[in-house]
């Protein structure tokens, strides 16, 4: 039964490894960027999983059930991981947009998206 609760963590590790596989072994630049995006989703999933508390209540003081406020104010969840995840998603979008726009420019100049063929000239 305890195995069930570990599934999110297994999914996190799996996503990170899938993403790394895509970055390391895929030749297409867009696929590499998809890999980075998958790693990022894995890390976000990790943060969200950390934030889950069984029996917790949303920490909005005015809309919490009155018995919770009266009896167990400690069951309100400190929303730090959620805040971290939101920030991380926003940053991820910025990085993704930047990478994709760079890929567009790279395709204009090199005419290919193969990672082995785009390289700065040595010497």
């Amino acid at each position: 039964m305890t195995m069930i609760f570990n599934i999110p963590f297994i999914a996190v590790v799996a996503m990170i490894f899938i993403g790394l596989y895509a970055v390391l072994f895929k030749r297409n630049l867009v696929k590499m960027v998809i890999g980075i995006s998958i790693i990022e989703s894995g890390v976000n999933l990790f943060l969200i999983t950390l934030g889950y508390r069984e029996g917790g209540v949303v920490p909005i003081f005015t809309s919490a059930p009155s018995e919770v406020v009266k009896n167990a104010p400690g069951s309100m969840v400190l929303p730090v991981p959620q805040a971290l995840t939101l920030t991380s998603i926003v940053i991820g979008v910025a990085v993704l947009a930047l990478m994709l726009s760079l890929i567009m420019h790279i395709y204009e100049h090199y005419g290919t998206l193969d990672v082995r063929k785009i390289r700065g000239p040595e010497e």
């Binding site: 790394l20 390391l24 072994f25 590499m32 990672v115 390289r119």
Partner: peptide, 17 residues
């Protein structure tokens, strides 16, 4: 050394890993 610096992004990430 030249083989290390082959300009391939995947290889650079591989070194990190």
């Amino acid at each position: 050394l030249e083989k290390m610096h082959n300009g391939n992004t995947s290889d650079y990430v591989l070194w990190f890993v």
